[in-house]
Structures are given as structure tokens and as C-alpha cells.
Computed example of a mutant assay.
Amino acid sequence: MTAPVYLFDLASRQAQWLATRQTTISGNVANANTPGYRARDVEPFAGVLDKTKLVMAATNNGHIGISPSTTEATKVKKSESWDTVYSKNSVSLEQELIKAGEVNRQHTLNTTIVKSFHRMLLTSVRTPS
């Protein structure tokens, strides 16, 4: 019996979270000159993981059933901005660019890990010639 590999599911969840965060950051930048606009950010990925529970499989009728919890990676909250300008707009372009750089680095790390794991799996199933 083989154990399932959850790395690809985890990487997919993080990629979805990164896409949501990038969309939120883009919205903040697009509204940088909108009076009264409040910058937003998504819940940290660690918080999303903390809410995700592993699903236990009931392989016997005597097992206690546990329902899986669903987690949304799209929970958006008000961002902690560095400052608020006269127009009551809390978007700091510098802060948003720093966040965009973080998203880019995290996405690059995510894809690099998935590529390496994929190569490792292909190497392990390759038959000797």
C-alpha cells in the first residue's frame, strides 16, 4: 500500500493563495489615487494552513467520522498601512511593491519545489535499462 503525496495539493493551495494576494495587491495599486480607499491584504498563508484539517478516512464501520473543514484563501482584510494621506487613502505604493516582490519570491520557491519533487518522482519510477 502506498501513501498519498500531499505536496502537490499543498503547493496548489499556496499557488491559489498567492494569486489571490497578487490580485488584492493589484487592486490596491489600481486604487492608489482613489479618495477614501483602504488598502487590503489577504489572511496569511500560515493562518489558512492552521484552519485546514487533515481528513481521516473511516475504513471500518466502527470508526468515528470527522467532517473535513473547508478553507477559503480569499479572506480579505484591511491592510496595516504605513500612513494615511490627506485624501484618507491608506495605499502606500512602496509597501504594495514590497508585497508584490514577496509574492513573486514565494511563487518562484513554490514552483521550484514542485519541479524538484516532480523530477524526484520521475526518477524513482524510471525503470533501469
Results as ranks from 00 to 15, higher is better:
Asp83Lys: 15
Lys88Cys: 04
Glu94Gly: 12
Leu54Lys: 10
Leu54Gln: 13
Lys115Tyr: 03
Glu80Cys: 10
Val29Tyr: 01
Ala58Ser: 14
Asn28Ala: 10
Leu97Phe: 13
Ser116Lys: 00
Pro35Tyr: 05
Ile64His: 15
Leu121Lys: 03
Asn60Cys: 08
Arg40Gly: 11
Lys75Glu: 09
Ser81Asp: 06
Trp82Val: 11
Asn33Val: 04
Val91Asp: 01
Thr70Cys: 07
Glu96Phe: 02
Asn31Ser: 09
Ser90Trp: 01
Ala73Val: 13
Glu43Tyr: 12
Asn89Pro: 05
Trp82Ile: 11
Ser81Ile: 01
Ala32Gly: 10
Thr71Asp: 04
Asn31Tyr: 00
Ile25Leu: 05
Ala57Asp: 10
Ile66Glu: 14
Lys99His: 12
Phe45Thr: 02
Ser87Tyr: 04
Ala73Ser: 12
Trp82Asn: 13
Ile113Asp: 00
Lys75His: 06
Phe45Met: 08
Tyr86Cys: 03
Leu54Asp: 07
Asn61Met: 13
Thr70Trp: 01
Thr84Phe: 09
Glu96Ala: 03
Lys53Tyr: 06
Ala30His: 09
Asn110Val: 01
Asn31Trp: 05
Leu109Lys: 10
Thr59Pro: 04
Arg38Cys: 12
Ile66Lys: 15
Asn28Tyr: 02
Leu97Trp: 15
Phe45Ala: 02
Leu122Trp: 04
Lys51Gly: 00
Pro68Asn: 08
Ala100Cys: 08
Lys115Arg: 08
Ile98Val: 15
Ile25Tyr: 00
Pro68Asp: 03
Arg40Val: 04
Lys51Ile: 00
Lys53Thr: 03
Ile98Cys: 06
Val114Tyr: 04
Ser69Trp: 06
Asp83Val: 15
Asn31Pro: 08
Arg38Ile: 07
Phe117Ala: 05
Glu72Cys: 07
Ile98Met: 10
Thr52Asn: 10
Arg105Glu: 06
Ser26Leu: 10
Gly27His: 12
Asn33Thr: 04
Lys53Asn: 08
Glu94Leu: 04
Thr71Tyr: 05
Ala57Trp: 13
Met56Phe: 09
Lys99Asn: 04
Ala30Asn: 07
Asp41Met: 06
Glu96Pro: 02
Tyr37Glu: 06
Ile64Ala: 15
Leu54Ile: 05
Lys115Gly: 09
